[in-house]
Write a protein that binds this DNA or RNA. Structure first.
Lengths: 194, 194
DNA sequence: ATAATTTCTTAACATACATCAATGTGTTTC
DNA sequence: GAAACACATTGATGTATGTTAAGAAATTAT
C-alpha cells in the first residue's frame, strides 16, 4: 500500500496512537481537485477540514470592489479549514481554491469531535494546532501593522520558500497586502542590492 | 455572595454545567492589578489565561525600533491569553498590561486541560473560543490588507465602541496600524463630514 | 509552432500615510 | 494654583505604495 503523507504526518505528530491513526486514515476520504477548482465557495456551509496530501491550496476573500485577498496558502502536509463556519455552521466568508492539481483528505468535523472526546492525546494535538494557527495569525497582524512591503516579502521568502516558487506573484502580493506592481518593484530592488 | 461577571459569563455560556462552573470559580483565583501594571512581560513563560472581571487589558509587542504594536484589547467578560506560550511553554512574544485598574480571574492551563478531558461540553466551549479567536484575527488581517485607515477606524468604532472611550488614542492608532497623528487626522475628517 | 491569454515588469503620476516639529489641551503632582 | 507631564492636534514635508497604462514575458490553447 502506498504511504500517504497524511499517514506519515499522523504517525510523527500524534504519537503512540496506532488505533486513532488507523481510524483517521480509514474514515477520511481522499478527493482530487484540478488546478482552478474550488473546494469551498463564499456563502457555502462546510463541516469539513482538509489535509493537503499533494498540491497547493489558497484561502481568500473577495471584497466589495471585487478584489481578492489571500488569507493563507496550504501546501502538502498542511491543514486547511474554514474555522468559523465549521464551528458554528455559518456560511463561509472565504473561498478555498486549488492552485495546483491537489489531493486532499477530507476530515469531517464530527470525526474530530468524537476522537477528541475519546482520546486526550488527539485532543491536545488538535488544540495545539489551533494555538499554532493563532500564533501565526498574530505574527502576521504585527507584520502588517509595522513592517514595510519589502520586509514582509523578505520574511515570506524565508518562511515559505517552497510556496513562493509555486504560486503566481499576484497571489503572493495579495497575501502581503500589496499590489502586484508593488511586489514587482520590491523584487527588483532586492535583486539589485544582491 | 457577590455575583461575579465570571460566574454570569460561565452560566450563560457553558450551559448545564453547574459542577464545572463551581470548580472553575473555586479554583480560579482573583488578582487585582493597578493601571500600568504588567500581567506578563515579553520573554516570560506563562501557563495561565485571564478572564477580565473588571477593567481593561492590552496585549502588545515591541519591535526592534522600540515601537509598540497593540494586538488586542480585553475589557470585562473577555479572555486574554498568551496562546503560543501557554501551549508550548515558550517565552511570550507579547506584553500584557492593565490600561485601567483591573481584576482578573487566573485560569491555569492545567485546569482547562483537566476539565476538557472530563467534560465534553466544556471542551467544545473551549474549542469554540479558539475558533472565534481565529475568525476575528483573520478578519483583522483582511482589513489590514485592504482597507484604508479611515475604514479600519470606522469599523473599530462600530465593533468596540466601549473600548474606544476608555483607551488612549495612541493605543487605538497602534491597534489600527497607523500613527497617532494619522488617527487624529482621520478623526478630524470624520467629524467634519458629519 | 502560432496565436491567444494571462502574468509580470516598467514608467509616470496620484495619494495615503509617516515623519518631524510646533502648539494646544487636559491631568497629575507638589 | 502653578508647574510638569502626558496626550492630542495641526502643519509642512517626505516616502511608500496605489493607480493607470503600456509593453515584455510566460503560459496555455489551437
Amino acid at each position: 500500500m502506498k504511504t500517504f503523507r497524511f499517514k506519515t504526518y499522523l504517525t510523527s505528530n500524534v504519537e503512540s496512537l496506532e488505533s486513532i491513526n488507523k481510524e483517521l486514515l480509514n474514515k477520511c476520504k481522499q478527493q482530487q481537485f484540478k488546478k482552478g477548482d474550488y473546494l469551498l465557495r463564499e456563502g457555502e456551509i462546510s463541516k469539513t477540514s482538509y489535509f493537503v496530501e499533494d498540491g497547493l491550496l489558497r484561502q481568500f476573500s473577495v471584497d466589495d470592489k471585487g478584489k481578492e485577498h489571500v488569507i493563507q496558502f496550504a501546501p502538502e502536509n498542511w491543514f486547511m479549514a474554514n474555522r468559523e463556519g465549521e464551528c458554528f455552521n455559518l456560511p463561509s466568508s472565504y473561498n478555498i481554491e486549488a492552485i495546483e492539481d491537489t489531493t486532499v483528505f477530507i476530515i469531517e468535523k464530527e470525526l474530530i469531535e468524537n476522537l477528541s472526546k475519546t482520546n486526550s492525546v488527539f485532543l491536545n494535538f488538535n488544540i495545539e494546532l489551533l494555538h499554532k494557527h493563532i500564533a501565526s495569525l498574530q505574527k502576521r497582524i504585527t507584520q502588517l501593522q509595522s513592517k514595510t512591503a519589502k520586509e514582509r516579502y523578505l520574511d515570506f521568502i524565508k518562511t515559505y520558500p517552497d510556496v513562493l516558487m509555486r504560486v503566481p506573484q499576484t497571489y503572493v502580493a495579495s497575501y502581503l497586502g500589496i499590489t502586484p506592481e508593488s511586489l514587482s518593484r520590491v523584487r527588483k530592488e532586492i535583486s539589485i542590492n544582491k
